[in-house]
Amino acid sequence: MSVIDLSKLPFPENDLKSFLDQVCEANELDYAAYAGINPIAQTVHGFVNYPDEWQTLYVDQGFQNRDPALLAASRSIAPVDWQRLRGEQSFKSIFRAAHDFGISEQGMTIPVRGPYGDMGMFSVTRDCPDEEWRLLKRKVLGELQTAAVHLHDHVISSQALTRVLHHPALSKREIEILQWIAAGKTQQDVADILTISNRTVEVHLRSGRSKLGALTTSQAVGRAIGLGLIHPL
């Protein structure tokens, strides 16, 4: 099985590799990588912003098939810190090689599970001491979870077969809230109007953004209007 470099494929309006760069930049990380398994198409997809020489070696050696970080994450619902894998022989052999290319063994892999048995593994790394890593992780994990799902959804829905299956199923509540936001109301306004808590509005907005493949609420509003779910005012 080969790794398909999505960064070299045409992705309308989405440059996935520059997305990785942005995630690294915003979250104080050195490198990021994504690997996705689509059981319907029986493929593994991957793209990274690692140095080119390391990418080449990784693929030539077929590391994607025995990378313990990917294997472990695929069986976990929580992000897997690579510290948990340091005892594994396969981890040692891959990271001895990675080290020569300036890639740190300080990192983690965030698993994403999609609705069709599809899975994505989003890995990030940063060369720093354990304590600094612990603090950074705590600060950026929520952001990285969101980025991981966003990336995965885009990759999966870029494939013809899964695109057919995919259409956003928003609940009445999610649509209602997006409609109020489109009308210029703040999150707190919406909470007051619907007599629910601000946090309830927040979880519905977050869910709406995820279903619409949007990273921001204004993107979500734009897409919801485009799909005819809500009306522009």
Binding site: V112, T146, V203, R206, S210, K211
Partner: peptide, 19 residues
Amino acid sequence: SDVFSAILDGEPPLRSATI
């Protein structure tokens, strides 16, 4: 999203990376 959908009155469930 499946066996408990009746609780949500048939509405689609929440979907989020952080829930």
